[in-house]
């Protein structure tokens, strides 16, 4: 991640002359964490590529209205999350692999994907996450993979910290049970 501060990026963006430079720096700084966050939600590279482009378009449109009441980082995660959810909802009409019923479709898609190198346990973990309730799914991914603080997650998902902690706890319990039941060597 580039070391430029968010304040410096916003300063550049606030100035008409340096707007493009600021936007470019924002993209360079945040493209990877946002991409991986989106990828864990949509799974397929081509889909993640579409979603991240749409997310940056939204950022471009909305950055002037960004009120700085929240952190830039949580605002970006919020946009990326919303874009991925919108994409998933659209895709659900044509595919069911974002649901428990379609979990084998997802597994087949991942195994055939040239940009997926996961082993059996990683696929099992993805399956376990995918069958969680929506909120628990989001909370688990942000906490487990992105190691986001509960305070920041509260800004991204607009859920209270207490509720987030409970969701994370429930998600972990369900995933653990799933792994024990489905993977022979996990005990």
């Amino acid at each position: 991640m580039e070391k430029i501060s968010d304040n410096k990026i916003l300063e550049l963006i606030d100035n008409e002359v340096t707007f493009d430079e600021g936007l470019k720096k924002l993209i360079v700084k945040y493209q990877e964490p946002l991409y991986w966050h989106i990828r864990r939600m949509v799974h397929v590279h081509e889909d993640a590529d579409d979603v991240i482009q749409n997310a940056f378009i939204k950022v471009y449109r909305g950055i002037k209205k960004f009120k700085k009441e929240s952190k830039l980082y949580t605002w970006l995660y919020r946009i990326a999350t919303n874009e991925a959810i919108t994409f998933i909802n659209k895709k659900k009409r044509n595919s069911n692999y974002y649901s428990e019923d379609g979990i084998s479709d997802l597994e087949n898609t991942l195994k055939a994907d040239e940009y997926f190198d996961g082993d059996e346990i990683q696929i099992a973990l993805i399956r376990a996450i995918e069958i969680l309730p929506k909120r628990q799914k989001q909370v688990f991914r942000l906490r487990y993979y992105d190691e986001m603080s509960y305070k920041d997650m509260a800004e991204v998902l607009e859920i209270s910290v207490g509720s987030l902690k409970a969701s994370y706890h429930h998600a972990i319990q369900k995933i653990e049970t799933y792994l024990i039941d489905n993977i022979d060597y996990v005990q």
Binding site: Q31, H45, D49, G118, I121, Y168, I172, E176
Partner: peptide, 24 residues
């Protein structure tokens, strides 16, 4: 909360095409 999850390696199973982020 979970010793199993705590000890699982958190390697990223997903990859991207070469130089994807440079192009993005």
């Amino acid at each position: 909360h979970s010793k199993i999850l705590a000890t699982l390696p958190r390697d990223n199973p997903y990859t991207v095409p070469p130089e994807y982020f440079e192009r993005l």
